[in-house]
Simulated assay, not measured.
Amino acid sequence: MTGVPVTIARRPRLVEPQLEPSPGDPIVDKHGRVHRDLRISLTDKCSLRCTYCMPAEGVEWLAKASILSTEQIVRIARIAAASGITTFRLTGGEPLLRPDVVEVVRRISELRGPDGPVQVAMTTNGIRLPQMLPDLIDAGLDRLNISIDTIRRERFAALTRRDKLDEVLIGIRAAQNSSLRPLKLNAVAMRGVNDDEIVELVEFAMEHDAQLRFIEQMPLDAGHTWDRAQMVTREEILESLSARFTLEPVPGRGGAPAERWTLDGGPHTVGVIASVTAPFCGNCDRLRLTADGQLRNCLFSTSEYDLMPILRAEAAGSGDSGAAADSAASAAATDLAIDGLLRSCIHNKLPGHAINDPSFLQPARGMNAIGG
């Protein structure tokens, strides 16, 4: 399919008084939350068409010319790392569809922040893992999450609109046999779809030395068909698990999105990400970068901060002078502008996502275009 630019209402570029912090200082919002996690979407394309994420046909892909280059991604990551971002999670769409994904991992993994080397994680559907995992680990990948909502063949094909369960299972086995730990499996719990598989999915994860993390279904589908009544809640998930396992809360959650419980005394655990019924906004430390260069301070934000004018302005001016000093000054000014936009984006972060407020508006973008 030919790439078609996605139209989205952009937030006007805010002209604000210079914030007190300067490059190298922690990135803190006005509610005191220190940000340490940047989620980078490498592409909006995916090899599956999950019903809660994308329509079956007619997906408007981002134009190829709008996608950030590896140089641009690494530059933004370098600036973020210098100000205390310690974890970079690569997402999509499906990140393994990006041809230079191994190079992206390699170059980000080489970055260092004030506290030392950064961590590089990835969320994937696992389909291309068997052939790519050795190179990804060699490049410096530290952690891996694999999405799998069902282990029943016909249900998988209906849910993802693709008959690729075997490929995903082979990918999970490859991850199980790797050095990457903890290995996490993500499942969106859906009423009448896979809510009868909750215990089965946990037992499957245990067999593969992985932690299952259930995710409450969120209003992030491209078709805007989300229905709260179809969402399986945190309490329902825990009730189903309690019928089979003895659950004990794991303390020390910090800013992690998942609450965790040990299963039958351990060592296995299960997690629940309850963004709708038990929001964890008060401890959120995440910032997002879309594949087309938009900063988002919340998964559910209806506004974005556009890095592309900053990057394009430097590129447009690069031919004005061949002097090395001018080039260095231009690069330094661009770095400063990128850092400033990162800080403006986080400074204006709201205290919560307001899903449970009657005035809540679903983001215009679907999850594949925002980044998981």
Score class of each variant (00 low, 15 high):
R312H: 15
F156H: 13
D264S: 11
P117K: 07
C46M: 07
L42C: 13
M206W: 06
L201I: 07
P12S: 11
Q18A: 14
L111E: 13
H224C: 12
A331S: 14
V118H: 10
G372E: 08
M122T: 07
E60N: 13
Q362E: 09
I172R: 04
G293C: 02
L289E: 02
T269F: 01
T246M: 07
D196M: 01
E16K: 08
W226R: 03
R128S: 14
N297F: 05
E216S: 09
V59D: 08
I237Y: 01
H35F: 13
L62G: 02
D335C: 01
E57F: 13
L42S: 05
R106P: 14
V188Y: 03
L144C: 04
S301P: 02
E197S: 09
N145V: 01
F88W: 04
L307H: 03
I151E: 07
K164T: 14
L62F: 00
P5L: 07
R106I: 00
A56L: 12
F156W: 01
I170A: 15
A175D: 01
K349W: 05
I151T: 15
G266A: 07
T246D: 13
R173I: 00
T160D: 04
P249H: 06
A325S: 15
E216G: 09
F204Q: 06
S22P: 03
E110T: 14
